[in-house]
Amino acid sequence: MKEKWKKMDKKKKKKILLVIEFVLIFLIIPGTFALYKGLVNVNVTTVAGEMISDIEIIQRDSYIENNVPYFYVVVKNYRINGNQTLLTATAFDYDLVISNKTGSNGKFSYVDENGVSSNGYSSTLRIENCHLDSNMDSNRFKIYVSRDGNLETQVDYKVQIDAVQAVTENASSNASNNSSN
């Protein structure tokens, strides 16, 4: 094989190298990353199945607490499809970012189901280092909305989830009991 390569024409060698590079760049490496925008559901095909990291916003007129309106963000690792419940094939870590859409000027704070809360309000709220494993589960976050000034204000917000497959199944969770074994 080595001898054959040595004797090969230079032009032919170049062509073979180019083909190899094409294969590497366009077929193998990009499979690690996928970006979806504007869809209700988020899933990526993993080696064994889907990583499901769905989010949902629940907002009602009655959601007022001590004069402050709020809504819920729910992150789920499952999806109900008619009679079928699809469960994520893999655990994942995720961050949530609540921010204003262009032209909006709201402020956000949050509390989660374990009483972890933000320190006051901010115009971009980051909830980091969250986790869901592959047992059917969801995390809820209560997002309070405020504004500067005294006037009635419409706040247009955006809730973004960035999820990544967890390295280990038992990564620390923001909703777990940490008793040792």
Binding site: T32, V44, T45, I161, Q165
Partner: peptide, 18 residues
């Protein structure tokens, strides 16, 4: 090469009364 990522967002509107 062994990890999968996903990112997306939802939008909403809420009124903060005066």
């Amino acid at each position: 090469f062994a990890l999968f990522k996903a990112s997306k967002y939802l939008e909403g509107t809420i009124i903060v009364p005066e």
